[in-house]
Design a protein around this nucleic acid. Structure first.
Lengths: 237, 237
DNA sequence: CGGGCGATTGACGGTCATCAAGCTGTGTGG
DNA sequence: CCACACAGCTTGATGACCGTCAATCGCCCG
C-alpha cells in the first residue's frame, strides 16, 4: 500500500476493482466512462480528526468516501455545533455545495476518499444523463434523511433520539453489508450529542438508562441491542 | 379564469406566459422542449387547508407551485407534527419521492400548482441534461436549507428560532420579488410552531416578547420588523 | 348576538442543559 | 511493571427553558 499519510495522496487503483462502486454514484457509468473518470479522481487519506474541508472554504473538490466515517457539521459563531450527517463508504460529499462549502467535514477515524476537482467533475457529468440521474437519486436520499432528522430534532425526546440513532445507524451499516451483532459506534459521545441536538451528559445518561432497562449493552466502541424490538418500538413511537 | 374549485383542474395556459418560469426548473428548457412539457402539465387549484398529497400515499404526481404557500410536514404515529418546509411559487414538490411520498403537503391559503404525472415527467426529463442539472441545483438548494433547519432545530433557543424564521421568510419572499415593509405570514402560529420545533404558546410568547422589546410589531397576518438589524443580530447569534 | 377558532396570557412542572466531580481506559515514561 | 497524565465517559446536584394545562381575549361570520 502507498503512504497512508495524513492528507496523503496515492495513485488510484482502477475503478473496476473499487469496493464501493456498487454503492456509489459511479455505478451509473458505462465501462468507457469509468475509465475517463478514473483519470480525474485520486485517492486521499485522512487521519482521525483531520479536516477534509471546512465550512465557507472555496469548494474546489468533491469526494466519494471509500473507507471510514466522516462527520459533516455546521458551527454557529459562538461555537455551538450541529452535526448534519455522517458519511459512509459510497457517499458523495460536496456536490450540493455552491461556490463555497456549506458545512465542515472531518474524519472520525482513518478515512480514504476518492477526490475530484469540482470543475472537472462537473464538466465530466454535464452531458451524462445516467450520471445526473444517479446524482439526483443520491441527493433525494440525502434530502429524505435530512427531513427525518428534522422530525427527530424538533419533535422527539432524548430517549427517542438515541433509540432512533441506534436503529438507523445499524440499518445503514447493514445496507453496506456490515451487519454485526453489536453495532459499532466509531464516533464519540460528543459527536452523537451534536448529531441529536443533545449534550454529552444527556446522551451518556440515556445510554445508561437503556442499559439499566435491559434493552442495550454498552461495550467499548459499540452497543449491543439486546432487545432490538424494544429499541425499535421506542424509535417508532 | 377557469373554475377555481378545490382540486379543480383547468387547462394550462402556455408556459411562455407562466409567471414562475424564471424561478422554476422550467427555466432550463429550450422553447421546443417547453412546448412538449406543456402537454404533460395541468393546472390544479386547492382551497385553504386542502391536501395536495399525503405521506405514504403512492407518489403519482409531482408539482410545480404557481401560487400560494404549501406546508410540507411529517407526522409521528402519536400525532406530533414537524413541518419540514414551506413551498413557495416556483418550488418543485415531489421529485425526491420514491414510490411513495415521504411527507404530506397541504395548501396554507389558496394554491395553484402545475401538476405532472411522475412517470411521464421522469421519461421527459430522462435524456435532458439541462433539465437534470437544474433539478440537481434545486435539490441542492433544498438540502442546504434542510441543513440550516437542522442547526436551528437542534441548537437554537426559542427566541433565536423565531428571529431566524422571520429573517429567512422575509428574504425568501424578497427573492421572489415580494419584498414588503411588513412581512406577510400566511401560516398560523401552529404552523410556525411545528416548523420551529416549538409549541404555539412559546411562539406566541416569543412574538410578544420581541414586540415588547420594540424589535417587531405584530399586525394581523403579518409582522413588521421595526429594528431589522436587531432581529438579524438575534438570528445570527 | 352567539358560536367557534386562533391567538394570547398565566401558573406550574418536567426535561434536559449546566456545572462539577469522579471514573475508566489508554498511552507514556521512568 | 507501575506511576502518571490525559481524554473521554459517567454520575450527581441544580436550575432554566420551554412544554403542558387552563382560562381569557379577539375576531370573523353566520
Amino acid at each position: 500500500m502507498r503512504s497512508p499519510v495524513a492528507g496523503g495522496r496515492s495513485v488510484a487503483q482502477p475503478c473496476a476493482e473499487c469496493a464501493v462502486r456498487p454503492f456509489a454514484i459511479c455505478a451509473a457509468l458505462e465501462p468507457a466512462e469509468m475509465q475517463q473518470l478514473e483519470q480525474l479522481g485520486h485517492h486521499v487519506h485522512f487521519r482521525p480528526g483531520q479536516a477534509v474541508f471546512a465550512q465557507d472554504a472555496a469548494a474546489g473538490f468533491c469526494y466519494i468516501l471509500l473507507e471510514g466515517v466522516v462527520r459533516l457539521y455546521k458551527l454557529l459563531p459562538d461555537g455551538r455545533r450541529q452535526i448534519v450527517g455522517f458519511a459512509l463508504a459510497g457517499d458523495f460529499i460536496g456536490v450540493a455545495a455552491g461556490e463555497r462549502h456549506g458545512f465542515s467535514a472531518d474524519a472520525v477515524g482513518p478515512v480514504v476518499v476518492c477526490r475530484f476537482a469540482r470543475d472537472l467533475f462537473t464538466r465530466f457529468a454535464a452531458l451524462k444523463p445516467n450520471l445526473l440521474r444517479r446524482i439526483n437519486e443520491f441527493e433525494a436520499g440525502e434530502l429524505n434523511r435530512a427531513r427525518d432528522q428534522m422530525v427527530l430534532l424538533g419533535r422527539r425526546s432524548a430517549e427517542e433520539k438515541v433509540a432512533v440513532f441506534l436503529v438507523c445507524w445499524r440499518d445503514r451499516l447493514a445496507r453496506l453489508g456490515q451487519a454485526a451483532a453489536a453495532v459499532p459506534l466509531p464516533m464519540g459521545r460528543l459527536d452523537i450529542a451534536d448529531y441529536l441536538g443533545l449534550t454529552v451528559e444527556t446522551v451518556s445518561r440515556t445510554f445508561t438508562k437503556l442499559e439499566r432497562d435491559g434493552v442495550i449493552e454498552i461495550l467499548p466502541g459499540r452497543v449491543r441491542l439486546l432487545d432490538a424490538v424494544r429499541v425499535e418500538a421506542i424509535a417508532a413511537a
